[in-house]
């Protein structure tokens, strides 16, 4: 096994399981759509809440996406093969996360203009929303996989992952929505974006190693 062959296999698997990605996207769209219907369809309210609505829906969708990320690998013995491959386990985990992140993020960004229009998000804030997604979602995936690896051998691990991981998602939600609100108010938002980048970088450094420890424990 090489890192390249591993990554190719991961992309092939994502393509063959594209229904999983579509399901997560549909969930995201439905969750966002419910707000104008269930809370208020007033353009003023929606414009001010759009960032928060989109981010909360995205966090739930990402939790859905990462929760079962290693389940199939655990069942078919791939996790054991990763451990004994002689390759760096954190690097393999990172490659898997990158593949999953791209598979989720690209279609998500594709539907973002439609959802922003629906929620009357000001055009000036739209690109800030996109930037918060680009800078914030890596940390959500990287933190999420730690929970996914810890609960991989449990049959009903979804709720446990949510309880374990959701508190760590809160800073990302807070700084993302603050950046969008600051952009709407024509205030500087680079500080919030810098914090989102810092959180993603910190997760990038820590998460693959913590996930590797959890996977080794699960594989044994």
């Amino acid at each position: 096994m090489t890192y390249t062959s591993f990554l190719v296999s991961e992309f092939l698997l994502i393509w063959r399981r594209k229904q999983d990605v579509i399901n997560v996207l549909l969930f995201f769209i439905i969750a966002v759509t419910l707000f104008p219907i269930g809370v208020s369809s007033s353009p003023e309210f929606l414009a001010s809440a759009a960032g928060g609505i989109i981010w909360c829906a995205a966090v739930l969708a990402i939790l859905m996406a990462v929760e079962g990320m290693f389940k199939e690998d655990f069942r078919d013995g791939s996790l054991e093969q990763w451990v004994v491959s002689g390759l760096s386990l954190p690097a393999l985990i990172l490659l898997k996360v990158v593949a999953q992140w791209l598979a989720f993020l690209l279609p998500l960004l594709g539907i973002m203009p439609l959802l922003s229009e629906m929620l009357f998000l000001p055009e000036s804030s739209f690109w800030v929303l996109i930037m918060t997604f680009l800078l914030g979602t890596p940390s959500l995936f990287l933190i999420g996989v730690i929970g996914a690896a810890l609960t991989v051998s449990l049959r009903q691990g979804a709720m446990l992952v949510m309880l374990l991981i959701l508190p760590f998602y809160l800073p990302v939600i807070i700084f993302s929505t603050l950046a969008i609100q600051a952009a709407e108010a024509n205030l500087p938002y680079s500080g919030q974006l810098a914090l989102l980048s810092a959180m993603s970088l910190l997760s990038l450094v820590i998460s693959p190693f913590m996930t590797a420890i959890a996977i080794k424990a699960s594989a044994s």
Partner: peptide
């Protein structure tokens, strides 16, 4: 090492599975 669970992916073809381990 080939264990009880052999690390073969159901959603990959035979050739794709082998190429993952022997690229």
């Amino acid at each position: 090492y080939i264990g009880h669970s052999v690390g073969v992916k159901n959603l990959l073809t035979v050739a794709e599975n082998i190429r993952c381990y022997c690229p």
